[in-house]
Amino acid sequence: MADLRVNVGGLEMKNPVMTASGTFGYGLEFQDFVDLEAIGGIIVKGTTLMPREGNPYPRMAETPMGMLNAVGLQNKGVHHFVNHIYPQIKDIKTNMIVNVSGSQVEDYAETASVINELENIPAIELNISCPNVKQGGMAFGVSARGAAEVVAAVRKVYGKTLIVKLSPNVTDIAEIARAVEGAGADSVSLINTLLGMAIDAEKRKPILSTVTGGMSGAAVKPIALRMVWQVAKAVKIPVIGLGGIMNWKDAVEFLLAGASAVQIGTANFIDPAVTVKVAKGIDDYLDRHGYKSVKDIIGALEA
């Protein structure tokens, strides 16, 4: 059994497997299927300062080996999280991480400062890349200046590990990554969903209420892998890789490309127990190849 521990921007994890925001609820939804404490980190549903109703139904379209979603950050706001959700999850012995979103810089900073006070939340993931709301941070995530601005504002009020989730819907993701690194991010996670669209030909109508949505699932993996590889070379802070990871082999590919940890997202819908299988699979891979630590394969791609 290899040493699976990793440190991502000050965040100590027992293994490099995390869950992607919006795909694992608050963890509780999956406790019948997996031992939550066997997961390296659980990133809970995107949280905003004020409650959000999200987009109208329909919000989902299945695509070949993937899906589009247009949830639109439905959540009951950070104060509901603090008062009602946090008490239920604070004693789960893994890294419970809150994904923070907003529509203006002040909202991000205020939400982050509220979560900063929660003892058992060791990190936040800043969502500056949601494609599904008009001011869902997408405006920040697509320019280096905007991204740096929101990260710098949150950095001032947030003392723990600050992960910034990057949008793939940009010309040069490495440039954005460097900008958020410069503004004080401890880590970057990528990729968020790719902007896509689905049409019902019979009805001559879009399937999603918002017309466009965020694409995820197995089909996006090659794009995610390429971007993780590019960003890992461009920044010194650790990179968390996600996008289409369905099994341990996909996860190992991301680690080889330079990710220090991975997030499992849409795959949770197909196999609710996939996270622990991925952690086990990485361990077996390391043993099989004679590696003592998972750190030995991070960025070990021979290119």
Partner: peptide, 27 residues
């Protein structure tokens, strides 16, 4: 039978509008 993905109330795709706002049909 709203279109759904996760089936366990995690993805919030299958919502129906109710007197308590959007709730998951699956959960």
């Amino acid at each position: 039978e709203n279109t759904m993905a996760c089936g366990v109330g995690a993805c919030l795709c299958c919502v129906e509008k109710t007197d308590e706002g959007h709730v998951c049909v699956c959960k």
